[in-house]
Design a protein around this nucleic acid. Structure first.
Lengths: 204, 204, 204, 204
DNA sequence: GATGAATGAGAATTCATTCAT
DNA sequence: TATGAATGAATTCTCATTCAT
């Protein structure tokens, strides 16, 4: 019994190591560019073992994407539960936290890069879409409109879309330039623009 | 003479067809995902012929990137030569024209996508960088500061960087959603933000 | 431990089989004429496996050349350690042994043939040269001059060069005519000439 | 008529240029290593034209080999017709002349190299063999035995074979080291050995 | 669970040869 | 005659996946 548990634990450790190595690799290069050998070498674990734990390349990417979503949701929940003056403050806080997460977590970086280079089968599995993130921000924006912190006359959907664009732009540029290290700074830098977006000067 | 020209023309026609087919393929998928057979089939030209005109996959990507740069420079020159009230107007016009170009031209779309999926050797050849574009916009911004149309207290470099972020964000989102068709609209939509960026309300 | 050794052994066995099959193929035809499929079929091992063990065609040729050198050095050492009346006897013995080795060992035959058909990259790796063999014989000749067994007034370097020519001539002819089978006989046949070379009649 | 003759002349000039370019290329590398494009570039003549004049790669090699034989026969005849004290002198003279020819004539160099790297079909066409050369020298040796200039007790065939070996050895070494430039010197250097071969000291 | 080895289905690339002009 | 272009049949090489231990 103890032995079995030992084995299980060992297996889980391997699996974790593999997912983390995958994240590091996928954060560096596209899906097709990343070779399973790169991953097994990055993890220091044999290719055979990789296949014991994951059925194929797609599954590994899925695992990374799942883990990414988990980590993003954790941040999301934390922000949701923290007290905020109003919805706009919460939204800005969410963006800050998300930027910080991306900057520090290769798993999330990998997920971001994977979204742009996923084969069709995986796209179909429901990854490969910014939709859910956009829905979340949109909800907060709606709340902001309700509580008066968002005064822009634009519809919530459009605001969410624009926010997304700006955020993605900062992500892409920081991803290209310095492996996302500069993302938090970049976000800080565009905050005035976002404020103007959500609460234009004339309307405040 | 005519004979020679005839042969050259045929070759040039094939080469052009190949570059355009490559552009369509690279606009759809990453460098590694795109197979040379995809290109040769898209062009209706044999793989062998492809290799007669281009030495290898890298060379084809290079040719696409070269042609992209040519087309972007054409638009750039046109905007530079057109009369504008002031530098800021010129900058906004440039962005509009560039968005329109991207939306309609697979060559430019391919170039954009290639920038994110280029193998190292090609990166080294001087592609793979937004730098030159950023320098161009920065120059115009400097002119705008000089002629008073840009009133933001931020340094020109930072303004250029932020503009770039917003533009790239719109590119990426439109690229994912609808093959860049919505890019011009997206740019139109963020214009107020850009105005606020370059000429903040309090400073106008 | 046993398990690991078992796996390694299997791999080594395959590798050995591949090198030996390569030797047989390269002994029969030039580098460019030999196809990797010839080798993999000769070895009864898949092309993929060949690439698992050797990165490319050059590496296989290198492996063959390395093994050839090893085998030649083995003979060399054996002759060096065996007792001889004088250096000239040792030299003649070395030539005999080398001829016998060439006649019986496809690895060495392959190496010989490869030397004439190696691509430039491999030439550069230090193969593709008779120099070291010539240096060895030259050293023995110098010893022969010292111990009086070599009485020719020619400089040692020239003697080594001429010896080399005669030896190579016999190699080439036997290689063309009967896959090196006749080499030992040919060497025996030219012995009087070699004696005359090292100890001319008038000087003995 | 004149026009036709003009055209024919032009064609012959092209053909000659092609054969000579082929010779230069084949003198540098093996049959399989030499690419038809190498030849057409060396000649400065298009690949298409090459195929107009020669049916395929084999035919080009054949043409080179034919021309080589012509040139060797010319030297042979010249030596045969020149007056000599005795057959041995003629033989040595023949070897000298042949060495000089090889050293200066890329066509002959090409032929030599081709002999070792010819595909089977060409071997079958009667090239690929030193036999005829050996027969020629053997005949002279027989004459030498008859006129007393060759005093070796060895049979003529063996003498011819050994001569061949030594000559080939010198060819190969000079071919590898300096594109056959040193061949005449090498031949001069081994002359005492050859004398000893044909007229051993004790028998003169 | 884990590993090194093996495999086959592509993918990139080469090149003798043919074609259209 | 001559040429640039085109082609297809190899050939080398890659890599996700499977296998044996």
């Amino acid at each position: 019994m103890t032995e079995r548990r030992g084995k299980q634990q060992r297996g889980i450790a391997t699996q974790t190591a593999l997912i983390e190595a995958s994240a590091r690799v996928f954060a560096r290069m596209e899906y097709d560019t990343a070779k399973l050998k790169d991953i097994s070498e990055e993890a220091g674990i044999s290719l055979g073992s990789l296949y014991f734990h994951f059925g194929n390349k797609d599954d590994i990417a899925s695992a990374v994407l799942d883990e990414q979503q988990t980590r993003m949701k954790t941040v999301l929940s934390a922000v949701a539960e923290a007290p905020h003056e109003h919805a706009l403050a919460q939204l800005l806080s969410l963006i800050d936290e998300m930027a910080a997460l991306i900057a520090r977590d290769a798993m999330v970086q990998a997920g971001i890069r994977l979204l742009n280079s996923l084969p069709d089968e995986l796209q179909a599995r429901g990854y490969g879409d910014y939709v859910s993130w956009q829905e979340i921000t949109q909800e907060i924006i709606v709340a902001g409109i309700a509580d008066g912190s968002v005064t822009s006359p634009r519809p919530a959907e459009e605001l969410a879309e624009i926010l997304n664009e700006v955020f993605v732009g900062a992500q892409v540029m920081s991803g290209m330039r310095d492996a996302w290290a500069s993302l938090p700074d970049r976000i800080t830098r565009v905050r005035p623009l976002l404020l103007e977006l959500f609460a234009p000067t004339g309307t405040r």
